[in-house]
């Protein structure tokens, strides 16, 4: 019997083999999209099927939104060929849509529906959405305050650090005086200055700006300096034989050659200044996302904390993306830069 079925299969294999690859390519291209759709339908169902264990007003909206996303994922990936680059991008990210849908479903079930996770500390997704819809003005104010403080301090710190780094790298005399100071003060975490800064500066805002500038300035200085110091003397020789004056050597040789290092410094400065920003807002400045976090903790409003954390992470990541975009623009001449 088995031999018959085998030969049957072989005989009818010819027409089927032309369809099997079609199915296979369809599965490969759209299968994950369908899976993503399933995951988000599961989220929608999990929202609407069971009763919430607590009192949340956005459960129903979240369920509907999940169905909408499921539909979009399905049509987007299946019809990707008609959607151009957007369709291709969607298909490429489909695995992430699956993971996200599954994660949110699990989260929803583990918190709002069965309270497997202790409740006030682990709010369900709808509680966080509720924060975004109902506490938006306060959250926005905090975002604006944080961005203003961070931007001011960062720009000052980056500018001062860059100029200091170039001066130390270029001039022996400046290096003689600045280097020891840099070694003494630089490695100190900027937050250690917090108590002193807050009563020596006229306002907590200026104190925080100073601290953020300090946190930014140190890595920018050191890396700019090392960038300028490591410029091959062959470049200077070439420029000098072509008639370059010292100002040309600094502006058109040393600085462009050091720029890749400078951007590493700017990147590191960004990271450490975020840390200072949050701490300064928590302790001194009564505004911004750090303060919002602190405030939310005081009221045991855990959903607000998660909401603020998500916003903060998006902002920090956005800032780094922006920095990398600027770098890619200025350093087009480099080959093989890291894609953020």
């Amino acid at each position: 019997m088995s031999t018959y079925s085998l030969s049957d299969g072989l005989a009818s294999g010819a027409p089927r083999s032309s369809r099997a690859p079609l199915l296979a390519t369809w599965l490969r291209d759209s299968g994950i999209g369908v899976l993503a759709s399933v995951a988000w339908i599961a989220l929608g169902l999990s929202c609407l099927w069971w009763e919430d264990v607590g009192d949340w007003s956005r459960t129903h909206s979240l369920g509907i939104a999940a169905f909408v996303i499921a539909a979009a994922a399905l049509f987007g990936t299946v019809g990707a060929d008609y959607l151009g680059s957007a369709g291709r991008a969607l298909r490429q990210r489909a695995p992430w849509l699956v993971a996200l849908g599954a994660f949110l479903t699990l989260w929803e079930v583990a918190t709002a529906k069965f309270a497997w996770l202790p409740l006030p500390f682990f709010p369900p997704p709808q509680a966080i959405i509720e924060v975004y819809t109902d506490d938006l003005p306060k959250l926005l104010d905090s975002v604006i305050a944080s961005v203003k403080l961070q931007l001011g301090g960062y720009i000052i710190g980056a500018a001062v650090g860059f100029l200091t780094g170039v001066s130390i790298g270029w001039s022996r005399a400046v290096g003689y005086w600045v280097h020891p100071v840099l070694r003494f003060i630089g490695p100190l975490p900027a937050t250690a200055w917090l108590p002193i800064a807050f009563f020596t500066f006229p306002s907590s805002w200026s104190a925080s700006t100073f601290l953020i500038a300090l946190a930014t300035g140190f890595p920018v200085t050191v890396l700019t300096w090392s960038g300028v110091a490591s410029v091959s003397s062959a470049y200077y020789d070439v420029a000098r034989t072509l008639g370059a004056k010292p100002s040309f050597l600094v502006l058109k040789v040393a600085i462009p050659a050091a720029l890749p290092h400078v951007f590493v410094g700017l990147f590191m400065g960004l990271g450490s200044s975020f840390a200072v920003l949050v701490v300064a807002e928590m302790i001194g400045v009564k505004a911004g996302l750090g303060w919002y976090l602190q405030w939310a903790q005081g009221w045991a409003a855990y959903a607000n904390m998660y909401a603020a954390l998500i916003v903060m992470s998006l902002l920090c990541s956005g800032a780094i993306t922006l920095l990398f975009a600027i770098r890619d623009r200025l350093l087009v001449w480099q080959k093989g830069t890291v894609k953020w």
Partner: peptide, 17 residues
């Protein structure tokens, strides 16, 4: 140095930027 005397070194030493 003066641009009336220009050197071409063994390495081209072009400015990569």
């Amino acid at each position: 140095p003066h641009p009336s005397r220009v050197v071409v070194f063994q390495d081209p030493t072009l400015f990569p930027w």
